[in-house]
Design a protein around this nucleic acid. Structure first.
Lengths: 202, 202
DNA sequence: TGTACATCAGTGAACGCGCGTTCACTGATGTAC
DNA sequence: TGTACATCAGTGAACGCGCGTTCACTGATGTAC
């Protein structure tokens, strides 16, 4: 509790400033824990420099808070993949950049990656960005687009692009996830894995 | 508790019979939950038709019990993969059978698969079978052997076989894991995924 | 064959703890007059 | 400029619950005589 500096109470009308502090505290704790169940409302309150009940004026309950944080992390993930394409001059480079960004995000934010892609406890999350449906769906569709751009036109192209995208996504997720859960394994460098994988798939 | 039939107390000297019942109850609950943290000692005791303290005469604590069950599941997993090779006449068929068994185990025992390959909470588990090291290591090494048998001899063969095995394992795990966590996605059939993946990798 | 006794499989009650959440409140801030 | 008051950001204490685990015990089973 008082590891945090003494908080000054927000001024009237500025109570929602705490909202952001709580979101950010939760984000940090989730990154460390890699598991939404391992982060308690008390932990969050302490990290935000506030007592637990203060959270409830801003979020209905723990689930609502987690959903909000996870939605933000999905958006950040999508943005990171988007930025991975920046500077690419060919469709092939775009695809490569996107995949590199995928592995990079998982490697630099393992806790968040696990919360996004290994969680079962929480149902679907509304993502600010896009695609009415599932949060993962947005990323998948963009990856599909990037793959399709690299597949030569012809009969059955859409089918082929879909198959390749599923294989690519599986490989990326498998590599990312196993690296996190089995860090003692002698993994090859992501760049080597990725280059080889793309050569074989596309 | 009394959903279970009234248990008859074991005879003297047969107290260890309960050991198996507890292991099996835990196995069932782990399959349903897919998460060791979501299964309590009280749940286990109730499923075994016994009160919680009875467990402690047979297992030191919850962790010891979970380790024992998980070690058994790793052995079962390895055995399943081994059986996947049965009947194969070529090394390529052996590899294919092993991979098919991998995906098949994950699909038919999703809860156990997740406990084995997505758990972070528990440290390394001693497996009855083999390879002093990590439990996953045994499976990996056997997969590596199966892949190596399909890779033509030549300079750098070992290196190539290792790379391919990492890629294959990543793809298998990614596909298996995502199928479990995102069941609403329009996954292609495992057999199609596998055939295509092997064609591309080997 | 019968009885006293030691063994041991399992029970019932309780422990201390951390959890999500609720409730009545406090006291600083801004507003009305 | 000064005071009474409403607002609202946040607190302190407590709730009921489920958890892993411990402890003193009970009572059926087998053994010794």
């Amino acid at each position: 509790m008082p590891a945090e500096a003494k908080r000054r109470r927000n001024r009237r009308g500025e109570g929602d400033l705490l909202r952001r502090q709580i979101l950010e505290a939760t984000t940090v704790l989730l990154a460390e824990a890699g598991d939404a169940n391992a982060v308690s409302m008390r932990d969050i309150a302490a990290a935000a420099g506030v007592t637990p009940p203060a959270i409830y004026r801003l979020f209905a309950d723990k689930e609502a808070l987690l959903r909000a944080v996870i939605a933000e992390r999905f958006d950040a993930f999508d943005l990171h993949l988007e930025q991975g394409e920046a500077g690419a001059t060919t469709v092939r480079e775009q695809l490569e950049g996107r995949c590199r960004a995928y592995l990079d995000y998982a490697a630099t934010h393992p806790g968040h990656y696990r919360v996004l892609f290994s969680a079962t406890h929480l149902g679907p999350v509304e993502v600010g960005a896009s695609d009415g449906g599932h949060p993962g769906a947005a990323s998948f569709n963009r990856l599909l687009t990037a793959v399709a751009a690299c597949v030569p036109a012809g009969r059955g192209k859409a089918q082929r692009a879909f198959t390749i995208t599923v294989e690519l996504w599986s490989a990326l997720h498998g590599f990312a996830d196993l690296r996190i859960t089995k860090p003692e394994f002698p993994w090859p460098a992501s760049s080597v894995f990725l280059a080889d994988m793309l050569e074989r798939l596309v």
